[in-house]
Simulated assay, not measured.
Amino acid sequence: MRRRASGSAGGLSGCVQPGPTGKLTQAARVLYEPGPSEAELAAFGLTKADIPDVEFEVWPDIWPAFLLFEAMSTQWRVGMGGPIGLDYTAIPAIAQLLGMKKTDTTKAFQDIRVMEAEAMLVMSESK
């Protein structure tokens, strides 16, 4: 599926080639879904200790983006209504700390934006 990008650079129109996002959105959900509350568990006679840890396999092709997104978890911009997005100005410094090459960071950026959107959706659902 091809769609035209809304902007253009120097009179040249861009083209975006989106791929499947399921792996990315699932990874973001695993990181940001709160799980059941103590009260919800208590209704069934359970505690958080009774619930096994969630295991999620991150595919190798999204591993760099996942690492960078997870490391960015303290870089949310927050407004009065909650998170409004990641602070993109922190990406180069965090990527450098992770030892990522500039080209890998550039490739990971679109994946980070997909995970960011899903994380914001998850956080808004848990309000």
Rank of each mutant, 00 (worst) to 15 (best):
M1L: 08
M1W: 03
R2Q: 15
R3M: 11
R3N: 04
R4F: 07
R4N: 06
S6V: 13
G7A: 15
G7I: 09
G7D: 14
S8I: 00
A9G: 11
A9I: 12
G10K: 07
G11T: 11
S13T: 08
G14R: 15
C15G: 10
V16L: 13
Q17N: 12
Q17E: 12
P20C: 14
P20A: 14
T21F: 00
G22C: 05
L24Y: 00
L24I: 02
A27E: 00
A28M: 03
V30K: 03
L31P: 02
G35L: 03
S37D: 06
E38C: 01
A39C: 00
E40L: 06
E40Y: 01
E40D: 09
L41Q: 13
L41I: 04
A42S: 14
A42F: 01
A42M: 00
A42I: 01
A43F: 00
A43W: 02
F44L: 10
L46H: 01
L46G: 03
T47L: 01
T47Y: 04
K48C: 03
D50P: 12
D50W: 13
D50S: 12
P52M: 09
P52L: 02
F56M: 02
F56L: 06
E57M: 08
E57T: 14
E57K: 12
V58F: 01
W59C: 11
W59G: 10
D61V: 02
D61R: 08
I62N: 10
W63P: 02
P64Y: 07
P64G: 04
P64S: 05
A65M: 07
F66H: 14
L67N: 14
L67T: 07
F69L: 04
E70N: 10
A71V: 08
M72I: 08
S73I: 04
T74Y: 09
Q75M: 10
Q75F: 02
W76M: 05
R77C: 03
V78D: 04
V78M: 07
M80C: 08
I84Q: 04
I84K: 03
I84E: 05
G85P: 06
L86I: 08
T89E: 07
A90V: 11
A90K: 15
I91R: 11
I91G: 05
I91V: 15
P92A: 06
A93E: 06
A93D: 09
G99I: 12
G99H: 04
M100N: 09
M100T: 04
M100P: 03
K102Q: 07
T106N: 09
T106C: 13
T106A: 13
A108N: 06
A108E: 08
A108L: 02
Q110E: 06
D111R: 15
D111Q: 13
D111Y: 15
R113D: 03
V114L: 04
V114K: 03
M115G: 08
E116R: 07
E116H: 11
A119S: 09
M120L: 13
L121F: 08
L121S: 15
V122T: 15
V122L: 09
S124K: 09
S124H: 09
S124A: 10
E125I: 02
E125L: 09
S126T: 07
K127V: 02
K127A: 08
